[in-house]
Design a protein around this nucleic acid. Structure first.
Lengths: 248, 248
DNA sequence: CGTGTTATTGACCAACATCAAACTTAGTGG
DNA sequence: CCACTAAGTTTGATGTTGGTCAATAACACG
């Protein structure tokens, strides 16, 4: 896997979707020290119980956050895309209470906690964006919680697809109405609190309804307004800065 | 409702359960300006869509965080107790994506965002604890998500009861193995993604098993190790500082 | 081509939902 | 102190969403 975009550009692009950044802030972010590392599909990037001393920026690939429960069940709690720092929280939560895994081959850039600490002390604006970023993660957990708690299987599936689409599009990783969603039906099931069998059936329903075509880890949206309605999707909880045009 | 403890003491006690605070930090926290306000049972404290310019510290009473979904369903996403600032997130997320409501009569102390901003700029230690606090909220959402997604009704109910007990006890609001849980079965259902009828039946099971006695908004734990096991409860995700003795 | 992973199908089942009624309990006012 | 009321809890009967198990089909990759 080759790197097409400078790693820290990815981060800056992402942060600009949630806040306005001044030139000095961008410069400071762009100067962060970074150690690149590769991960194979399915490899754990950080594990529950670890005490990381760096934060991992996703440069290429898809990542998921998950927890293993008592009876060996797995709950996936979020999906992450290039530009995200899914373990930014390790800055203030020393022991990981969940794991992060690569859903595809992944390139990650590790930034020492010390460097992040220095940066947020020096540039309060950056502290604010980082804090905001973790708060948005939190908002996403709430939305998923509401979905798993109160929405039907059809709504939940439509909803995640809307979410991933909007997030990819906001950082420029999807154009038109199709995109990569490198997630198996088993993984989708584990993220939605469903069984893989049921996910398969619901996916077929949504296809029949003409809302999406989802084959081979690639999604084509057939009817965006319809899909949003089906999933009871309202992007407000993503707290994106400007709505980029009419597509949303 | 009379106030027994100075409001900001509540906050400091709570923050000391998740971090070590220096004397100056405590002094600075204790000097925050506060506007007290009362709320009746069931009143909304902040509403989805609001743009608050203050943060609300809970001084007395119980609060819940909830979201209303498309078809009029409600999902409760967390419970909050005295010492919590459930809308600390409004500092960096201008528009509320959910509401906060009083489960009992509540006394809240509102602190202007401006004052909080000044404080976190002046005392980085406080910035860190506040950030950490919002990250722990986030960890709780994740745990609930895992519960609603993958745990049985019995486990979920046992689990919340464990959580509330540990949190109350950590700030000194429960002693022995009994405590107030001023939540109706309907509210419990809305927090766990269940129906009220089913909650009622499961509660009876747990009572029969001798794990808890839960009547009239008051819980008596009958078998703490048993309850923890039944709920697959491990307090790590609460990221409490020191485990206060053997009770946990 | 095999071989392993992922998707699809069918048959059957269980957990939990829904609906509706009855019963408790805690307030409230006379 | 006793009705009266409203909120909350409990019960029973019945329905449905989604789970489990197991087999087959479709790919993807070496």
């Amino acid at each position: 896997m080759q790197i097409r975009v400078p790693p820290l550009e990815r981060l800056i692009t992402k942060l600009e979707t949630i806040a306005v950044l001044s030139a000095p802030a961008k410069a400071a972010l762009g100067a962060l020290p970074l150690r690149l590392a590769q991960f194979e599909e399915n490899a754990d990037i950080v594990r529950q119980g670890d005490r990381p001393h760096e934060c991992g920026l996703i440069v290429e690939g898809f990542v998921c956050r998950y927890k293993l429960l008592g009876e060996g069940q797995r709950q996936i709690m979020s999906f992450h895309i290039p530009g995200d720092i899914p373990d930014l929280l390790s800055l203030h939560l020393r022991v990981m209470d969940h794991s992060l895994a690569a859903l595809t081959p992944v390139v990650a850039g590790f930034i020492p906690h010390a460097a992040v600490h220095e940066l947020v002390m020096a540039v309060p604006e950056v502290a604010a964006v980082f804090w905001r970023d973790t708060l948005i993660d939190s908002a996403v957990f709430r939305e998923w919680l509401a979905g798993v708690g109160r929405r039907s299987a059809h709504q939940r599936i439509a909803h995640v697809i809307c979410e991933v689409y909007v997030r990819l599009r906001s950082v420029g990783l999807a154009d038109g109405e199709s995109f990569q969603l490198p997630v198996t039906q088993v993984e989708l099931a584990d993220s939605l609190g469903l069984s893989a069998v049921h996910v398969n059936r619901v996916l077929q329903d949504l296809r029949r309804e003409g809302l999406i075509d989802y084959r081979g880890r690639f999604v084509v949206i057939g009817d965006w307004p319809g899909l949003k309605a089906r999933g009871d999707f309202d992007p407000d909880y993503l707290h994106l800065r400007g709505v980029q045009g009419s597509w949303m």
